[in-house]
Structures are given as structure tokens and as C-alpha cells.
Computed example of a mutant assay.
Amino acid sequence: MNKIINDASASMKGTIYQFYVALERCFLLESGQKLWIEKFGDVTVSGEIQIETKHYKGYLNDLHRNFWNTLANWMDKSFNHIPYKELVLYTTQDINKKSKLYNWNKSSAEEKLCIIKEIINTFQKNDLEITKSNEERQKILLHGDDFLLNILKKVYISYNSPDIIKIEKKIIEVHAKFISESKKIDFIHGLIGFIINSCRYDNNWEITFDKFEEKVRSLANHFSKNIIKIPEIKSYIPKDVEYCEDKLFIKKITEIKYEDVKAEAFRDYSCLKNFIYIEFKNCEIEMEEFKIYYNNLKRIFISKHRGCALDLSNDVIKDSQRFFNKITESEPERLSNFGIVPIEIRNGIFHDLLDIEKNNLKWKLKDE
């Protein structure tokens, strides 16, 4: 009876672990991407990565089924590896330095092929070691070297990976900084519940970037700290502001021939500078919190620029002006305990990002 209970417990932990790895990957999704659970494997991100998760104790040794069964699944003719850049075995197990798998991630595809052949041949030599499992391993070689090399070049072993507790801790530290301390776990559990319930609404168990972002925002607002209301935006607007054509972000607006928005853009940029000066001086926000918000907007800009650049008409200038409108008219996100940031300040950040030359950002979607 105890063994049955332990086996069930281990199986359940493996499933929960899969959900936590999926949650961790959801935070890395980019605009337009989708994540699937149990469709092509344990966790799959469209056009990016296919992950097999293993929550196990002990070592991932040369003959461990977690390695060979995963490899066999990826070698199966029904599995299409072409859409993925990486095929990852994500396991809590460590790899012993004496194992032939120890230098796997540093090896070329050809070296990886030699490793699996060496392991198979080693256990072929001793008649006592020829088991049904080894016969299954030998079948992998029947696919031929060319086929194997195309798969093996993508295979990565993420060993000694963080367990459930460590993943939860990392997500809280990175993504729940602004949630009340007593509600951080509720925030994570709410997201895990969203991931589990996603299969109820979609037979594919599919999670999109937009749906996940919406859920994060909803839970963050629900569990957030007491919100400090930002003063009326007029308190940040400088008097008698006149835009300067020499500013780099203004030149980038000139590049898309959008004269009508220059004055407003410069006003928003100036609002941001005043906001930073006033609020940092009063210690209402912390630099680290603002940096996270700032860098998130940079990521959003790059992602949306990339997406819009894929759908161009014959008029790049008009397309770029529409992209400008799409970015500056979108709903702002929350900053720490300030709640939703005024659109003028949020847009000021976008202009500030474009004003920094090394960022290499621009409104124009394609150089003519």
C-alpha cells in the first residue's frame, strides 16, 4: 500500500512540476506566440522550443530511461522537429562527472551521436547486460546518421534544474515584486489554476501570449499593494513646451513623416522627465521597480515592431504611422503600487527608449 501511495505522489509531483515549468515559460512568451501542454510533448512554445519535464531524484546516468525514452520520442517518425530551435530534457536530476552524458551540451551533433553509440555498444559487449531496454535503445540507430544528426543538434539537457519550490521562488522574486507579501503565493496559485483550466476552454490546452498577459494583469491588480494615486498629469506637464528637432526621438518621427504628433510626443517625453524627477525625489517609487517597467516596455516595443514589420503594405510610411498609433494608443500597464500609469508618462518612456541611440529602435518598420 505504501508503495502505491508513494508512486501516486511521485506521479502527481511530476504533473505539478510540468505546470510550473509551463508557467515559467509563459512569462517568456513574446507577442503572437503560443504555449501548448500535452499537444506535442510536455511543454511546447510555438516556433521556439519543445520541453520534456522530469521531476526525479538521483542522477541521470548513461542508461536512465528519462534520457532514452525522451530521445526515442523525438526520433519517432510522427514527431516533427523542424518547427523547433531546441529540444530540451528539463530534469531535476544531476549528471555525474563520470557519465558519458556530462559534456553533452558542449558537444556537437556528431559528438552527441558518438556518445549514444558508445553507450549502446558498451552494454552490447557484455551478454549479461543485453536487455530489452538496450534493444529499444539500439532501435534509435536504425533511423540513420543523417536523421539522427538533425535531431541531436537541437537536443539540450537542462539537468539539475530547479524543482517546484525553486521555480515558485524565482517567479515570485521576478514577477510578484509588487504583490502584497501575504498574497504572493495566491498570485502564483492563481496563475497555475489558469494554466490548468486552459484545457477546459481549448482542447489543445493552448495558452496565448495575449491571454496570459491579460490574466497576469488581472491577478496583479487583484492582489496588488495599496495603490498610491498618481497626481493629475498636469502637474508633470512643463509650461510653454516647444519640441526640439535635434532630439533623436523627434528625428525618428520625422523619418515616418508624422509631423502632427511631434508636439504631443515632446510633451509626453517632458512629462516623463518631470515624473522621474518628482517621484524619485519623493522616494515614492524605487529605481529597480521603474527599471523593470521600463525594460518591459522596451521588450513590448521590439516584439510589436517585429510583428507589424511582417505585415507591410506597399506604403511603409503609412504602415509606420499606424504602428506609432498602435503603440501610443494602447492601454498602459501598472507600475508598482501606483496603479495604471498615465498614458502620457508611458508614451514618454517609449520616446525616451527611441532617444537612446544604442537601443537601435525606430518607428519606421522597414528601411527603404
Rank of each mutant, 00 (worst) to 15 (best):
I51A: 04
S235P: 00
E24A: 08
I171H: 04
I195P: 06
I185A: 11
N221E: 14
K273H: 13
I185H: 07
K77F: 03
A263I: 08
A10R: 13
D163F: 05
F19Q: 01
K125P: 02
F301M: 04
I51L: 13
L29Y: 05
D163V: 01
E255V: 01
A176L: 05
S31M: 06
P231H: 05
Q124C: 12
K98W: 00
S270H: 01
S133E: 14
N126Y: 05
N274W: 00
Q124D: 15
K318S: 11
T122I: 03
K106P: 01
S31Y: 12
K326S: 14
S11F: 11
S108F: 06
S133D: 15
S31H: 08
K358F: 08
Y201D: 13
Q124S: 14
L149Y: 06
N121I: 02
S161E: 14
K85P: 02
Y59D: 15
E38Q: 13
L353C: 07
E329W: 03
Y90G: 02
I164L: 09
K98Q: 13
H81C: 09
L297I: 02
K39A: 08
E344H: 11
E255Q: 15
N121K: 08
Y17C: 02
H351V: 04
K153M: 09
D163I: 01
G144P: 04
P342C: 06
E168N: 12
L335D: 05
S198D: 05
H81G: 08
V21K: 09
K54E: 08
D42P: 00
I228E: 14
N296V: 02
S303V: 02
I349W: 03
F178D: 14
H55Y: 15
N204G: 00
L101C: 13
N295H: 10
F40M: 08
I120C: 14
G307A: 10
K34M: 13
A263P: 01
S158W: 02
